[in-house]
Every structure is written in C-alpha cells, then in structure tokens.
Design a binder for these strands. Structure first.
Length: 230
DNA sequence: GCGACAG
DNA sequence: ATCTTGTCGC
C-alpha cells in the first residue's frame, strides 16, 4: 500500500480510512511481551517540520533500552479525526530506523475509538502489521460514564450504536482518566491491560511519557536524530 | 443551527 | 501540540 500523504485532501483521506478499516484485526494479544514501544510527535509553533520519536522499553520492568528520533517536513494540517495523516509519515521513518522492534506499540492518540474506527493507532498498526493500541489524553469520539475515582477503575467507551470501542481508564487516584482503544492485532480488554501494566507513578504510560521527553529534548537540540541504544 | 473536536 | 509561573490540593 502506497499513500501519497503530501497531496492528500481531507475527502481523499476519509476514503482511505474507509478502505483501511477492513484491514484492522481485533484479536486477543497472544504471546509474551518482551519489549513495548511508545511514540510521540512534537513541533515548533509555526514550523512545517515535526519531530518524531519511538522509544523501546523492556517489559515488564519498563526501562528504556533504545529510541529512534527523526525530523520531517509535513504538509497535512491537524484536523480532528485525521491525525494519522499528519503524524504517520514521520513515525514510519522512525520505525524503519528502529533496529530493535517491540512486541507492541502504544500510540499517543486513539485506535478504533474513532468516527470511522481508524484512529492513528489502527492506521499505524495496519501499515507496519504489528500489534498497536492507542492511549489518548482526551476523548475524540464515543459515549461513556465517568469511572470511579480510584486508580485502576475503568468504564466502557461505546459508539453511537452502543458497541464497545475502548476503555476509559483511571490510572491515578482522582486524576483525569485516559482513553484506551485497540489499534491492530489486539482487543479492547488486552489493550487496556497492557496500558495498566505500563503505569508507574504518572498518569500516562511510561512508553508515551518517556518518548515525549526524548522528542522534546530532540526538538530543543539536546539530542541527535537517528537510532540510539541505551 | 449548535456543540464536539486525538495531537 | 505550543505559548508559560505560580499555585492549590492531595
């Protein structure tokens, strides 16, 4: 599958999402996790470049073992529901130069918890054909009831037809919950359990949190582009 | 027409 | 996402 992300229009992007939707595989996550990865994007306010990063952590101890950083020019604007078309190109480059491939990737955004069930986690997962899941800080689509205020509490995120599309998970006591949904090659329950196992002392899972730190240092010039082993 | 709206 | 300091609460 070859996608020209540079001259794509939103209507064409919508059509692509509808076509890609049928390629998503939602199955229980089987096998052992030795490595989990996180992804993130950062950019300067009025720049046409984005800074992308992927961090690989050992599992279940969650220690960073390697990371990939890359800067790339982007043309697609940020439009709610089309985040993948803006961030995936850079993430694919970072993925290709990642010498150590993880067993599952945590994306900063949604998976199937999307108007057309094609959030960035599903989009990226289908393209790399690997297990992925989305963990977002805010809801994009769906209906839910607030989970209890204790860490570990969660509720189901439903679409307009009352079909489950993800989980609203409280990762810390009395702190705003995160929105977890499967991307590709995993399901709702397993994607939630994986995120729970990636929580230490912060609201966001370690893969996402550490990658955000690396990418920001990269954007500020404190780290170099490329693949790095720790 | 109004409200919602990942990063 | 990014622009930005201190401040309130557990």
């Amino acid at each position: 599958m070859t996608i020209d992300y540079n001259t794509l229009t939103v209507p064409q992007a919508t059509q692509l999402q509808k076509e890609m939707k049928d390629k998503i595989v939602l199955s229980p996550f089987t096998g052992k996790i030795n490595y989990v990865a996180g992804t993130d994007i950062s950019f300067d306010k009025f720049s046409t470049h984005v800074y992308a990063g992927i961090t690989v952590l050992s599992f279940p101890d969650l220690k960073p073992v390697a990371y990939s950083l890359i800067r790339k020019e982007v043309h697609f604007p940020y439009v709610p529901g089309y985040l993948a078309f803006r961030e995936v190109p850079a993430l694919l480059d970072a993925w290709e130069q990642l010498e150590l491939k993880p067993d599952v990737v945590v994306l900063d955004g949604h998976g199937i918890a999307h108007p057309r069930r094609m959030g960035i986690a599903s989009h990226f997962g289908v393209l790399i054909n690997r297990p992925t899941l989305g963990c977002a800080k805010k809801k994009l689509y769906g209906i839910y009831e607030e989970p209890a205020e204790n860490a570990g509490a969660w509720s189901v995120l439903y679409d307009k037809q009352q079909q489950p599309i993800g989980s609203v998970l409280r990762t810390k006591n009395k702190i705003k919950p995160v929105f977890v949904s499967p991307g590709h090659l995993t399901d709702i329950a397993d994607s939630r359990q994986i995120v729970e196992q990636c929580i230490t002392k912060y609201r966001l899972p370690e893969p996402t949190r550490l990658t955000h730190n690396f990418v920001n240092q990269f954007r500020l010039g404190a780290l170099e582009a490329g693949f790095h082993r720790l």
